[in-house]
Design a protein around this nucleic acid. Structure first.
Length: 198
DNA sequence: TCGCAGATTGCCT
DNA sequence: GGCAATCTGCGAA
């Protein structure tokens, strides 16, 4: 890759495939502070990622990919950098990014929360609430605000123009906690967040 | 302010 | 048939 000095940067580039080909926990931490961007019909929605969770495959009972490859979770076994969207509790979508080392068979990072930056008005409309702090502080809320559905299933985040992630400021402090909403594997501190000093 | 239960659909056993 | 990587509203204190 020759990254010569580009005077005019018309569009910032999305994070490269290489970023996602790494240990799932590491990518989960690296994603904090990065900027999630969604383009819908010329409008831009964006926010800084402030909370993530790592889900591996084998040896992680809480992961969808813990047992075996199925129609739904096959994306977690696929190429890193793709979007894994799933529908749960009969009414919510959750947005994940496939991230794993070459040697790993499966793994993904759940994006749990972002801090809204652009397109807040549209998010308010999508979420039907005007409480900013409540727009994207959960996986289901985030997907609703960003209009992420099964249409984004298996989307390649490194080449898509409607959904991608940009580089951002590296957080100074990362907090590790047990993952939320699961029954098994709660001993692992694979929930990562940064203090968004609100 | 906190805690609990209902909503609601598709996937897995 | 049972339950899920959740959110919201309502009731009690």
């Amino acid at each position: 890759m020759n990254c010569k000095k580009s005077k005019i940067r018309i569009r910032m580039n999305a994070l490269p495939r290489k970023f996602y080909v790494n240990d799932t926990k590491q990518v989960a931490k690296d994603l904090l502070g990065k900027k999630l961007v969604r383009k819908i019909g010329g409008r831009i929605l964006s926010g800084v990622i402030v909370e993530t969770e790592a889900y591996k495959g084998r040896n992680d009972p809480a992961s969808h990919a813990a047992r075996k490859k199925t129609e739904r979770n096959k994306i977690m076994f696929g190429e890193a950098g793709h979007a894994y969207v799933y529908f749960t509790y009969g009414m919510h979508y959750c947005f994940n990014v496939v991230a794993k080392k070459e040697s790993d068979k499966s793994g993904a990072v759940l994006i749990r929360a972002i801090q809204p930056q652009q397109g807040i008005q549209l998010m308010i409309k999508n979420r039907k609430t005007d409480v900013i702090a409540n727009l994207t502080n959960g996986p289901g809320k985030l997907a609703q605000a960003m209009q992420i559905t099964l249409k984004q299933y298996n989307l390649d985040l490194t080449s898509s123009k409607s959904l991608f992630i940009l580089d951002g400021k590296k957080p100074t402090k990362i907090i590790a906690k047990p993952r939320v909403g699961i029954k098994e594997g709660t001993d692992k501190l694979w929930n990562f967040s940064i203090n968004n000093h609100l």
